[in-house]
Design a protein around this nucleic acid. Structure first.
Length: 135
DNA sequence: GTTCTCACA
DNA sequence: TGTGAGCA
């Protein structure tokens, strides 16, 4: 069994994940509903989470604690996937081309990440202002 | 005992 | 997001 199999192997029920992440079952199911995680199901329709799922939930929790809303988290995760697949495809390029691209695109990806973080932070700040305004 | 879906004084 | 109902 490979390392990857171990990361994606469906292992624990929602109760365990709850205590592992300090998220409510409600939140966990809600995030699944929005495509942030994809836990497997047992024959009796119970969710089974992998280490990968738990890791993602922990990342989600950090963003939630920082005041990022679901839309923001979705974009952050999407950005991350783009960066991951970019790296993966570059991994298959020839050495010469890769050296060139990875250096340039590494900076580009970093820039995008910072840009995204800044944009979302402003968005959540605006939310804060609005909630105060309507209070 | 636990989890699932659905719905909302 | 919480919570309770009614199942499996």
């Amino acid at each position: 069994m490979g390392r990857q199999d171990r990361r994606t192997m469906p292992l624990f029920p929602i109760g365990i994940v709850q205590s592992l992440t300090d998220l409510s079952a409600r939140q966990i199911r809600y995030y699944e509903e929005h495509g942030l995680i994809h836990p497997a199901r047992t024959g009796s329709n119970r969710r089974l989470f992998s280490f990968e799922d738990v890791d993602r939930l922990l990342e989600i929790k950090e963003l939630i604690d920082k005041g990022v809303n679901l839309a923001g988290i979705k974009e952050m995760m999407a950005q991350k996937e783009v960066r991951a697949s970019t790296l993966k495809s570059e991994h298959n390029e020839s050495e010469n081309v890769k050296k060139d691209l990875s250096d340039r695109e590494l900076r580009e990806m970093l820039k995008q990440e910072i840009f995204e973080a800044g944009r979302l932070n402003k968005a959540s700040l605006r939310q804060g202002e609005l909630s105060r305004f309507f209070h």
